[in-house]
């Protein structure tokens, strides 16, 4: 089973990101689960969401404590929440930031990190507002690129099934797929 934990703030779309990723994997004939863990359902509060992907039926209903991947929708959460808690030894952290992935890996104390300026990608694709861009679809596109867990087309198809601004969101995923950078120069 592949386990992915999302950290975001209420209103950024972490919950939708977890569902889009699950839907993409579901389209590749996997069993999936996507679910949120809310503290309080309000804008700005830290939100955690989970996606589980397996080629076997998933019965485990517990939250994720030892993720293979951690996806951070806003870099300010790094100092607010223990984002790398339980990350598997060879796990990967994907962060929405302009920063360099090697420096990010060092800062987080992890072996592998990837960075995407999902905020800029979202603004370029007119998703949300300049002050509150919706970065969730961009970050799932970037995740597809650095992890290989799901194909780009699957992510795009999952996004195209969303009720609003589907094409702009799909383009954000494609852009982020191309722009994401990973530590170690890969």
């Amino acid at each position: 089973m592949i386990e992915i934990r999302f950290h975001g703030r209420g209103g950024q779309g972490a919950v939708v990101a977890s569902k889009v990723l699950a839907d993409a994997a579901f389209r590749e004939n996997n069993d999936v689960q996507a679910f949120p863990y809310f503290g309080v359902e309000r804008r700005g509060a830290p939100v955690t969401a989970f996606t589980k992907i397996d080629d076997r039926h998933i019965r485990n209903k517990a939250m994720i404590y030892e993720p293979d991947y951690v996806i951070i929708l806003e870099a300010s959460l790094i100092s607010a929440v223990n984002v790398t808690e339980g990350l598997k030894d060879n796990g990967l952290v994907l962060v929405n930031t302009k920063d360099d992935p090697d420096e990010m890996a060092k800062r987080l104390g992890v072996k592998r990190a990837a960075c995407i300026d999902a905020t800029q990608v979202a603004i370029d694709n007119k998703l949300g507002s300049k002050f509150q861009p919706i970065v969730n679809t961009a970050i799932v596109g970037a995740f597809s690129s650095v992890s290989g867990v799901v194909k780009k087309e699957s992510v795009v198809n999952a996004i195209l099934a969303l009720p609003r601004y589907a094409e702009r969101n799909a383009q954000a995923a494609r852009d982020a797929y191309d722009q994401v950078r990973i530590s170690g120069g890969a």
Binding site: D31, F35, P36
Partner: peptide
């Protein structure tokens, strides 16, 4: 059905 563990969990 359990709050969140089912109510808000997406599965096939």
């Amino acid at each position: 059905q359990d709050a969140f563990f089912l109510s808000h969990t997406s599965e096939p």
